[in-house]
Protein backbone atom coordinates (compact mmCIF):
# COMPACT_ATOMS: atom_id res chain seq x y z
CA UNK A 1 0.00 0.00 0.00
CA UNK A 2 2.91 2.36 0.43
CA UNK A 3 3.80 3.93 -2.83
CA UNK A 4 7.28 5.38 -2.80
CA UNK A 5 7.17 9.11 -3.25
CA UNK A 6 8.90 10.59 -6.25
CA UNK A 7 12.32 12.01 -5.42
CA UNK A 8 11.07 15.56 -5.56
CA UNK A 9 7.61 14.87 -4.18
CA UNK A 10 6.82 15.41 -0.49
CA UNK A 11 7.87 12.86 2.12
CA UNK A 12 5.30 14.18 4.55
CA UNK A 13 2.06 15.98 3.73
CA UNK A 14 -0.52 17.55 5.97
CA UNK A 15 -3.82 18.51 4.37
CA UNK A 16 -6.44 20.57 6.21
CA UNK A 17 -5.44 19.11 9.57
CA UNK A 18 -7.62 20.08 12.51
CA UNK A 19 -6.83 19.23 16.13
CA UNK A 20 -8.90 20.19 19.16
CA UNK A 21 -8.47 19.62 22.86
CA UNK A 22 -11.32 18.89 25.25
CA UNK A 23 -12.33 21.96 27.23
CA UNK A 24 -11.86 22.04 30.98
CA UNK A 25 -14.97 21.33 33.02
CA UNK A 26 -17.48 20.72 30.27
CA UNK A 27 -16.53 23.81 28.36
CA UNK A 28 -16.48 23.62 24.58
CA UNK A 29 -13.47 22.00 22.89
CA UNK A 30 -10.80 24.44 21.88
CA UNK A 31 -9.53 24.13 18.36
CA UNK A 32 -5.74 24.31 18.37
CA UNK A 33 -5.08 23.61 14.69
CA UNK A 34 -7.53 25.08 12.21
CA UNK A 35 -6.73 23.48 8.89
CA UNK A 36 -2.98 23.04 8.48
CA UNK A 37 -1.40 22.35 5.08
CA UNK A 38 2.30 21.46 5.07
CA UNK A 39 4.77 19.50 2.96
CA UNK A 40 8.22 18.27 3.88
CA UNK A 41 10.38 16.84 1.10
CA UNK A 42 13.08 14.18 1.54
CA UNK A 43 16.23 15.60 3.18
CA UNK A 44 14.54 18.96 3.54
CA UNK A 45 14.26 21.09 6.66
CA UNK A 46 10.98 22.86 7.08
CA UNK A 47 11.12 25.48 9.79
CA UNK A 48 7.92 26.13 11.73
CA UNK A 49 7.85 29.43 13.63
CA UNK A 50 5.22 30.65 16.01
CA UNK A 51 4.58 32.08 19.45
CA UNK A 52 3.50 30.11 22.49
CA UNK A 53 0.00 28.75 22.07
CA UNK A 54 0.14 29.08 18.28
CA UNK A 55 -0.16 25.31 17.83
CA UNK A 56 3.34 24.71 16.47
CA UNK A 57 4.15 21.97 18.95
CA UNK A 58 0.78 20.32 18.36
CA UNK A 59 1.58 19.91 14.67
CA UNK A 60 4.64 17.86 15.60
CA UNK A 61 2.69 15.79 18.09
CA UNK A 62 -0.07 15.14 15.57
CA UNK A 63 2.48 13.88 13.04
CA UNK A 64 3.96 11.56 15.68
CA UNK A 65 0.53 10.26 16.65
CA UNK A 66 0.77 11.69 20.17
CA UNK A 67 -2.45 13.68 19.74
CA UNK A 68 -5.48 12.55 17.72
CA UNK A 69 -6.36 14.39 14.51
CA UNK A 70 -9.97 15.60 14.39
CA UNK A 71 -10.13 15.95 10.61
CA UNK A 72 -7.83 16.23 7.62
CA UNK A 73 -5.08 13.85 6.52
CA UNK A 74 -1.43 13.29 7.30
CA UNK A 75 0.44 11.33 4.65
CA UNK A 76 3.93 9.94 5.05
CA UNK A 77 5.66 8.45 2.01
CA UNK A 78 2.31 7.99 0.30
CA UNK A 79 0.73 6.26 3.28
CA UNK A 80 -1.98 7.86 5.34
CA UNK A 81 -0.73 7.81 8.94
CA UNK A 82 -3.20 9.87 10.95
CA UNK A 83 -5.48 6.84 11.07
CA UNK A 84 -2.69 4.28 11.62
CA UNK A 85 -3.32 1.47 14.11
CA UNK A 86 -1.20 1.21 17.25
CA UNK A 87 0.82 -1.62 15.70
CA UNK A 88 1.42 0.32 12.49
CA UNK A 89 2.41 3.35 14.58
CA UNK A 90 5.07 1.31 16.34
CA UNK A 91 6.43 0.21 12.98
CA UNK A 92 6.42 3.81 11.75
CA UNK A 93 8.90 4.70 14.47
CA UNK A 94 11.59 3.39 12.09
CA UNK A 95 10.89 6.37 9.85
CA UNK A 96 9.51 9.07 12.15
CA UNK A 97 11.40 10.29 15.18
CA UNK A 98 11.45 13.21 17.61
CA UNK A 99 13.79 15.47 19.57
CA UNK A 100 12.09 17.32 22.41
CA UNK A 101 12.86 20.72 23.86
CA UNK A 102 13.84 19.89 27.39
CA UNK A 103 16.83 17.54 27.56
CA UNK A 104 16.22 17.13 31.31
CA UNK A 105 12.75 15.58 31.09
CA UNK A 106 13.06 13.81 27.77
CA UNK A 107 15.50 11.26 29.23
CA UNK A 108 14.34 8.90 31.96
CA UNK A 109 16.56 9.84 34.93
CA UNK A 110 16.78 6.25 36.17
CA UNK A 111 17.91 4.65 32.89
CA UNK A 112 21.50 4.76 31.71
CA UNK A 113 22.21 6.47 28.43
CA UNK A 114 22.89 3.02 26.93
CA UNK A 115 19.49 1.71 28.06
CA UNK A 116 17.77 4.78 26.64
CA UNK A 117 19.52 4.37 23.30
CA UNK A 118 18.77 0.65 23.24
CA UNK A 119 15.06 1.31 23.64
CA UNK A 120 14.11 1.90 19.99
CA UNK A 121 16.55 -0.79 18.81
CA UNK A 122 15.13 -3.44 21.13
CA UNK A 123 11.57 -2.39 20.33
CA UNK A 124 12.27 -3.14 16.68
CA UNK A 125 13.77 -6.50 17.60
CA UNK A 126 17.50 -5.99 17.37
CA UNK A 127 19.84 -8.61 18.92
CA UNK A 128 22.11 -7.70 21.81
CA UNK A 129 25.42 -7.63 19.93
CA UNK A 130 24.07 -5.51 17.08
CA UNK A 131 22.43 -3.18 19.61
CA UNK A 132 25.70 -2.62 21.47
CA UNK A 133 27.55 -1.91 18.26
CA UNK A 134 24.86 0.49 17.11
CA UNK A 135 24.90 2.35 20.42
CA UNK A 136 28.66 2.80 20.18
CA UNK A 137 28.30 4.12 16.64
CA UNK A 138 25.51 6.50 17.69
CA UNK A 139 27.48 7.94 20.60
CA UNK A 140 30.39 8.48 18.26
CA UNK A 141 28.08 10.14 15.73
CA UNK A 142 26.90 12.74 18.26
CA UNK A 143 30.47 13.23 19.57
CA UNK A 144 29.94 11.68 23.00
CA UNK A 145 32.56 9.39 24.57
CA UNK A 146 31.90 5.65 24.33
CA UNK A 147 31.70 5.20 28.11
CA UNK A 148 28.67 7.52 28.16
CA UNK A 149 26.50 4.43 27.64
CA UNK A 150 27.08 3.31 31.22
CA UNK A 151 26.27 6.61 32.84
CA UNK A 152 23.05 8.21 34.00
CA UNK A 153 21.59 11.36 32.42
CA UNK A 154 22.24 13.41 35.57
CA UNK A 155 25.99 13.10 34.95
CA UNK A 156 25.66 15.14 31.74
CA UNK A 157 25.16 18.80 30.94
CA UNK A 158 22.12 20.06 29.06
CA UNK A 159 23.95 20.11 25.74
CA UNK A 160 25.29 16.60 26.24
CA UNK A 161 21.86 15.32 27.12
CA UNK A 162 20.48 16.86 23.98
CA UNK A 163 23.16 14.91 22.09
CA UNK A 164 21.85 11.74 23.71
CA UNK A 165 18.31 12.68 22.64
CA UNK A 166 19.57 13.22 19.09
CA UNK A 167 21.34 9.85 19.15
CA UNK A 168 18.11 8.19 20.28
CA UNK A 169 16.20 9.84 17.45
CA UNK A 170 18.80 8.63 14.95
CA UNK A 171 18.98 5.06 16.27
CA UNK A 172 16.56 3.61 13.70
CA UNK A 173 17.85 5.70 10.78
CA UNK A 174 14.61 7.67 10.42
CA UNK A 175 13.67 9.60 7.32
CA UNK A 176 12.00 12.45 9.21
CA UNK A 177 12.74 13.87 12.64
CA UNK A 178 10.42 16.32 14.37
CA UNK A 179 12.72 18.74 16.23
CA UNK A 180 10.52 20.46 18.82
CA UNK A 181 12.45 23.55 20.02
CA UNK A 182 15.61 21.42 20.28
CA UNK A 183 17.88 24.27 21.39
CA UNK A 184 15.52 26.58 23.30
CA UNK A 185 16.54 25.23 26.70
CA UNK A 186 20.26 25.54 25.94
CA UNK A 187 22.75 28.33 26.46
CA UNK A 188 23.76 30.39 23.45
CA UNK A 189 27.16 28.76 22.93
CA UNK A 190 25.79 25.22 23.37
CA UNK A 191 22.92 26.04 21.05
CA UNK A 192 25.31 26.71 18.19
CA UNK A 193 27.12 23.37 18.54
CA UNK A 194 23.87 21.41 18.63
CA UNK A 195 22.59 23.18 15.51
CA UNK A 196 25.85 22.39 13.73
CA UNK A 197 25.49 18.74 14.73
CA UNK A 198 21.97 18.60 13.32
CA UNK A 199 23.15 20.07 10.01
CA UNK A 200 26.08 17.66 9.88
CA UNK A 201 23.77 14.68 10.40
CA UNK A 202 21.41 15.87 7.71
CA UNK A 203 24.27 16.14 5.20
CA UNK A 204 25.33 12.61 6.03
CA UNK A 205 22.01 10.77 6.34
CA UNK A 206 19.66 12.83 4.16
CA UNK A 207 17.14 12.91 6.98
CA UNK A 208 14.33 15.48 6.74
CA UNK A 209 13.59 17.79 9.68
CA UNK A 210 10.45 19.52 10.78
CA UNK A 211 12.16 22.20 12.84
CA UNK A 212 9.78 23.81 15.32
CA UNK A 213 10.94 26.96 17.11
CA UNK A 214 9.87 30.34 18.40
CA UNK A 215 13.22 31.83 17.38
CA UNK A 216 13.24 33.19 13.84
CA UNK A 217 17.01 33.54 13.70
CA UNK A 218 17.50 29.87 14.52
CA UNK A 219 14.84 28.73 12.06
CA UNK A 220 16.26 30.96 9.35
CA UNK A 221 19.71 29.40 9.26
CA UNK A 222 18.44 25.84 9.82
CA UNK A 223 15.60 25.65 7.30
CA UNK A 224 15.32 25.43 3.53
CA UNK A 225 11.76 26.65 3.83
CA UNK A 226 9.93 28.41 6.65
CA UNK A 227 6.27 28.28 7.62
CA UNK A 228 4.83 30.84 10.05
CA UNK A 229 1.96 29.72 12.26
CA UNK A 230 -0.37 32.05 14.11
CA UNK A 231 -3.39 30.95 16.16
CA UNK A 232 -3.63 27.51 14.57
CA UNK A 233 -3.23 28.67 10.97
CA UNK A 234 -0.23 28.86 8.67
CA UNK A 235 -0.08 32.49 7.62
CA UNK A 236 2.96 32.34 5.36
CA UNK A 237 5.23 29.72 3.78
CA UNK A 238 8.24 30.19 1.55
CA UNK A 239 11.98 29.88 1.04
CA UNK A 240 13.94 30.82 4.12
CA UNK A 241 15.46 33.97 2.59
CA UNK A 242 12.10 35.05 1.24
CA UNK A 243 10.17 34.73 4.51
CA UNK A 244 12.85 36.09 6.81
CA UNK A 245 13.99 38.98 4.61
CA UNK A 246 10.93 39.96 2.61
CA UNK A 247 7.98 38.73 4.63
CA UNK A 248 4.60 39.21 3.01
CA UNK A 249 2.24 38.69 5.89
CA UNK A 250 2.02 41.57 8.41
CA UNK A 251 2.20 39.09 11.28
CA UNK A 252 5.51 37.74 10.03
CA UNK A 253 6.75 41.28 9.66
CA UNK A 254 5.88 42.18 13.26
CA UNK A 255 7.43 38.95 14.47
CA UNK A 256 10.61 39.73 12.59
CA UNK A 257 10.85 43.32 13.80
CA UNK A 258 10.05 42.37 17.40
CA UNK A 259 13.05 40.08 17.85
CA UNK A 260 15.93 42.23 19.10
CA UNK A 261 19.33 41.84 17.42
CA UNK A 262 22.70 42.15 19.10
CA UNK A 263 23.70 45.30 17.23
CA UNK A 264 22.89 48.66 18.69
CA UNK A 265 22.48 50.63 15.43
CA UNK A 266 20.57 47.88 13.64
CA UNK A 267 18.32 47.37 16.66
CA UNK A 268 17.57 51.11 16.78
CA UNK A 269 16.54 50.96 13.14
CA UNK A 270 14.29 47.96 13.76
CA UNK A 271 12.70 49.61 16.74
CA UNK A 272 11.77 52.60 14.61
CA UNK A 273 10.45 50.35 11.85
CA UNK A 274 8.38 48.43 14.38
CA UNK A 275 6.94 51.64 15.84
CA UNK A 276 6.08 52.79 12.31
CA UNK A 277 4.39 49.49 11.54
CA UNK A 278 2.47 49.51 14.82
CA UNK A 279 -1.18 48.99 14.27
CA UNK A 280 -0.53 47.05 11.10
CA UNK A 281 -1.25 43.81 12.86
Amino acid sequence: MSTTASPTGPLLSLRDVHVSFPGRRRRARTEVLKGIDLDVRPAETLGLVGESGSGKTTIGRAILGLVPVASGTITFDGERIDTATAARRRALSRDLQVIFQDPYTSLNPSLTVGDTLAEPLVAQGGDARATRARIAALLDRVHLPADAAHRLPREFSGGQRQRVAIARALALRPRLVVCDEPVSALDLTTQRTILDLLLEIQEETAVAYLFVSHDLSVVRCMSHRVAVIHRGRIVETGESAQVTEHPEHPYTRTLLLSAPVADVAEQRRRRAARAAAAGDF
Binding site: L64, R90, R94, V98, T116, A123, Q124
Partner: peptide, 15 residues
Amino acid sequence: GEPYVDAARVSGLSD
Protein backbone atom coordinates in the same frame (compact mmCIF):
# COMPACT_ATOMS: atom_id res chain seq x y z
CA GLY B 1 3.05 13.35 30.74
CA GLU B 2 6.86 13.18 30.83
CA PRO B 3 8.53 13.75 27.50
CA TYR B 4 10.61 10.62 28.01
CA VAL B 5 7.44 8.54 27.89
CA ASP B 6 6.41 10.30 24.68
CA ALA B 7 9.90 9.59 23.36
CA ALA B 8 9.52 5.91 24.25
CA ARG B 9 6.20 5.83 22.43
CA VAL B 10 7.78 7.40 19.37
CA SER B 11 10.58 4.85 19.71
CA GLY B 12 7.98 2.18 18.99
CA LEU B 13 7.52 0.73 22.47
CA SER B 14 4.15 -0.82 23.22
CA ASP B 15 2.15 0.48 26.17
